[in-house]
Simulated scan of single mutants.
Amino acid sequence: MLAQYMQQIETIGLNFFFAAIFFFIGMAIHDVLKQGKVPKFGQYIVWLVLFLGCAGFIAKGIIQVTWETSGIG
């Protein structure tokens, strides 16, 4: 039974791995911004860029799943 779902397990594991990587990147950026005493406007720009990167990754995953279920990809 496990062999039947191996691809799904790998996909879910990879998604959790990328979520953890984004979390750790966010924590590192938060630490650097606090220690560097970056102004609020600069912090907002940095967090916006990080959020857009995460949103792009999530959108890519949604598009990929949609295409694969409809037979395009």
Rank of each mutant, 00 (worst) to 15 (best):
M1N: 05
G42I: 09
E10P: 04
I12N: 04
Q43S: 08
I25D: 12
Y44N: 11
K37I: 09
Q35A: 08
T69F: 10
V49W: 07
G42Y: 15
I21N: 12
F18D: 15
G26V: 10
K34L: 08
F22I: 13
N15Y: 12
G36P: 01
Q8W: 05
A59I: 05
L50D: 09
G26M: 11
T69Y: 11
G53H: 00
F51E: 00
V38D: 03
L48Y: 03
W67I: 04
G36K: 00
L33S: 11
I58L: 08
E68L: 03
Q7N: 08
F41M: 06
W67T: 12
F17P: 15
F24N: 14
K40Y: 09
I45T: 03
F22R: 03
Q35W: 02
I62T: 07
W47K: 12
I29G: 12
Q8I: 01
I12H: 04
I45W: 02
Y44T: 10
V49G: 02
F18I: 10
E68K: 03
M6L: 15
I25K: 14
K60M: 05
A55K: 04
S70L: 06
K37F: 00
I72M: 06
I72W: 00
K60F: 01
F41C: 00
M27P: 03
I58K: 07
D31F: 14
M1P: 06
L50N: 12
P39T: 07
Y5T: 02
F24L: 15
M27Y: 12
Y44R: 06
K40I: 05
L48K: 05
I29C: 14
W67V: 03
E10S: 09
I63L: 11
K34I: 05
K60E: 00
M6S: 15
Q8A: 11
M1T: 07
G73R: 00
A55W: 00
L52V: 04
V49I: 10
A59Y: 01
C54F: 12
Q64W: 06
Q8G: 09
K60W: 08
W47C: 12
V49A: 01
L14F: 08
P39V: 00
G73L: 03
E10M: 04
G53F: 04
W67M: 07
V38P: 00
I29A: 07
F51P: 05
G36Y: 03
I72F: 08
P39D: 10
V32S: 11
L52Y: 00
G42V: 13
Q64V: 05
A20F: 15
F17C: 09
E68T: 01
Q43N: 09
M27E: 14
F51Q: 07
T69A: 02
L33H: 02
A28K: 13
M1E: 03
T66V: 07
P39E: 00
M27Q: 04
Y5R: 01
I9R: 07
F23V: 15
V49D: 00
I9N: 04
I45M: 10
F41A: 13
Q4V: 03
G13D: 09
Y44D: 01
I25L: 13
Q43H: 04
G26R: 13
I12Q: 07
N15V: 14
T69N: 03
S70K: 04
Y5C: 08
I62E: 04
F17A: 10
F22D: 15
F18H: 14
I58F: 09
C54N: 08
E68F: 06
F51R: 11
A3F: 10
G61L: 02
F41Y: 10
V65I: 01
W47Q: 12
